[in-house]
Design a protein around this nucleic acid. Sequence first.
DNA 1: CGGAATCCATAGGGATACTG
DNA 2: CAGTATCCCTATGGATTCCG
Lengths: 109, 109
Amino acid sequence: MDGRTLEPHHDCPVEVALEALKGRWTTLVLRELMHGDKSYGALSQSLPKLSDKVLTDVLTHLRKCGVVSRTVFRGFPNRTLYRLTATGWEIRPLLIELYRTGLRMRKSC
Amino acid sequence: MDGRTLEPHHDCPVEVALEALKGRWTTLVLRELMHGDKSYGALSQSLPKLSDKVLTDVLTHLRKCGVVSRTVFRGFPNRTLYRLTATGWEIRPLLIELYRTGLRMRKSC
DNA sequence: CGGAATCCATAGGGATACTG
DNA sequence: CAGTATCCCTATGGATTCCG
């Protein structure tokens, strides 16, 4: 927090973290993966209201952020495993803090 | 984290906190206010790239979230002071955690 | 000074259908 | 199974102008 940043900028660490969490479904997908590695279909079943397009968008986004990795197993049928990277696990304390803060904010309404 | 939430829901504490921080300029406005109470004009000067419309939007949003209060002083000219509420100050540890996490995420790229 | 009103451009989320 | 390809619609951010 250098006091000189006058506009939103992805170089700001706060923006970096928020960028990774951006999107309505992102934290839910992350939470699923924090329960363990999952295939595309398993994620889809865990989040029935999430469309294929958006799930793909979210996973692509998380991979670009270096938060999630993808491993494809060729065969019949194909399988794809998604898992958190080491960087992804770094987000866990942040989610917990988000939860704590959200709880306290609700109380004061 | 009850394991039963299958869709985004503002009742989820994580969503509550993220909702408050939503928008490109929101965290920057919060940061300004964490330096002390500020008038509309002072905020506008601190964030020159932020348009009136968006500044108003952000402040309205933060007030709806119970994070910021507004006090109007009638006179010539009028003045308006914005300040963090007690709830607003609860967000500070979260911003720090966002910063820490963002820093670590950058390193691993 | 401190906004509100208007208009515009873009991005994000979502529904549906199709493919390797 | 694990996506891609379209199309659409709304929300958000931004520029500009006007008002009490």
